[in-house]
Design a protein around this nucleic acid. Sequence first.
DNA 1: TAAACATATCGATAATCATCTATATGATTT
DNA 2: AAATCATATAGATGATTATCGATATGTTTA
Lengths: 102, 102
Amino acid sequence: MKLATEEFDRISKALADPQRREILQKLVARRMNCSDVHAMFNVSQPTVSHHLKELAIAGILDKEKQGQFCFYQVKAEVLSAYVAELQRRLGLEAIAVAPRMK
Amino acid sequence: MKLATEEFDRISKALADPQRREILQKLVARRMNCSDVHAMFNVSQPTVSHHLKELAIAGILDKEKQGQFCFYQVKAEVLSAYVAELQRRLGLEAIAVAPRMK
DNA sequence: TAAACATATCGATAATCATCTATATGATTT
DNA sequence: AAATCATATAGATGATTATCGATATGTTTA
């Protein structure tokens, strides 16, 4: 999966706010709805909703409506693609460690 | 090398501005002084100076004064540590990373 | 159907920040 | 010593944004 520069920059921005980063980390652990997230932090419900929207727009969260609830979960492929692209731009090479022959 | 949360967040912010990210990418390719960088972009010299300072404060650039010139170069270990920490926080499989040979 | 609940949107505000011009500081050169 | 060059700082401005309270919208339950 290849990220365009605008997508890459959007994700970088989404990760740059500490509150939003913390929310994202909670969602890495498990899929949650908005009030679940809200219960974990000391910010208002609209603020949580806003951050979730930003993360979703950046493409790193999936939004799934179930009745009155709205579940969010991380899109691991996008996160992986982001990190890979970041490594490429920073000149860091991923070293694949080959299993030793026996 | 282990990054504290404040250092991690500072780096995330430093990477979040596209102009600053582009400057950083140029410095990944080679060590440069301020006017070299300035010559590559359409922003004023003070703006370049500001971005270089932010990157240095974040700990991802090394600043070395040589006479009237001031050379900046990336600190690959810090970038590696950042990416590793990012992967950890995003729940991505940590793979070994190393600075590219030059 | 009315009340309660979950989430999103609106509009406002304060803080942050990217950028500029002008200028200061310090080093080299003539 | 004066002029020139490299970089940093000061101060201002406009844009972005994190946050809030109030409210709208849509869903479930009593």
